[in-house]
Simulated assay, not measured.
Amino acid sequence: MDEKKLTNRSLAPVLSIAGSDSSGGAGIQADLKTMLANDCYGMSAITALTAQNTMGVTGIMDVTPEFLRKQIDAVFLDISPKAVKIGMVSDKALINTIAEALEDWHAENIVVDPVMVATSGSRLLKEDAISCLTEMLLPLATLITPNIPEAELLTGMTIQSKTDMEQAGRCLYDRFHSQVLIKGGHAIEDASDVLVGTEVIWFHGSRIDNPNTHGTGCTLSSAIACGLAKGYSVAQSISYAKSYLSGALSSGLDLGRGSGPIDHGWQIQENVRSL
Rank of each mutant, 00 (worst) to 15 (best):
V75G: 03
F76A: 02
F76R: 02
D78Y: 00
S80A: 10
S80I: 08
P81S: 01
K82W: 00
K82V: 00
A83R: 06
A83Q: 04
I86Y: 07
I86D: 05
I86H: 03
G87D: 04
M88W: 04
M88H: 06
S90N: 13
D91S: 12
K92F: 03
K92W: 02
I95D: 02
N96R: 11
N96L: 07
T97W: 08
T97P: 00
T97L: 03
T97A: 14
I98W: 03
I98C: 02
E100Y: 01
A101G: 00
A101V: 01
A101W: 04
L102A: 02
D104H: 13
H106F: 03
H106Y: 09
A107C: 00
N109M: 03
I110D: 11
I110P: 13
V112P: 07
D113M: 11
M116K: 09
V117Y: 02
V117S: 01
S120W: 02
G121A: 08
G121I: 03
R123F: 03
L124A: 06
L124N: 04
K126A: 12
E127A: 14
D128I: 09
A129R: 05
A129W: 02
I130V: 15
S131M: 05
C132T: 15
T134C: 14
T134W: 02
T134Q: 15
T134K: 15
E135V: 06
M136D: 14
L137C: 03
L140S: 11
A141N: 08
A141L: 04
A141F: 09
T142C: 10
T142A: 13
L143S: 08
T145I: 06
N147F: 10
N147M: 06
I148T: 06
I148A: 10
I148C: 12
E150F: 11
A151T: 07
E152M: 12
L154H: 07
L154T: 03
T155G: 13
G156V: 09
G156Q: 12
M157N: 12
M157K: 15
I159E: 09
I159C: 11
Q160V: 14
S161V: 12
S161T: 15
S161R: 10
D164E: 12
D164H: 13
M165T: 11
M165G: 11
E166T: 15
E166A: 13
Q167L: 15
A168I: 10
G169L: 07
G169K: 05
G169Y: 07
G169H: 05
G169W: 04
R170C: 11
R170P: 00
C171Q: 14
L172Y: 03
Y173D: 00
Y173V: 05
F176E: 08
F176I: 01
H177P: 10
S178Y: 06
Q179L: 03
V180C: 10
I182G: 10
I182T: 10
K183L: 04
K183G: 06
G184D: 07
H186C: 00
H186R: 08
E189S: 13
D190K: 14
D190M: 07
A191E: 11
A191P: 01
D193Q: 05
D193C: 12
V196R: 04
V200G: 00
V200F: 00
V200I: 15
I201N: 10
F203Q: 03
F203K: 05
G205K: 12
R207W: 01
I208Y: 03
I208V: 13
D209L: 10
N210R: 14
N212D: 05
T213I: 08
T213F: 02
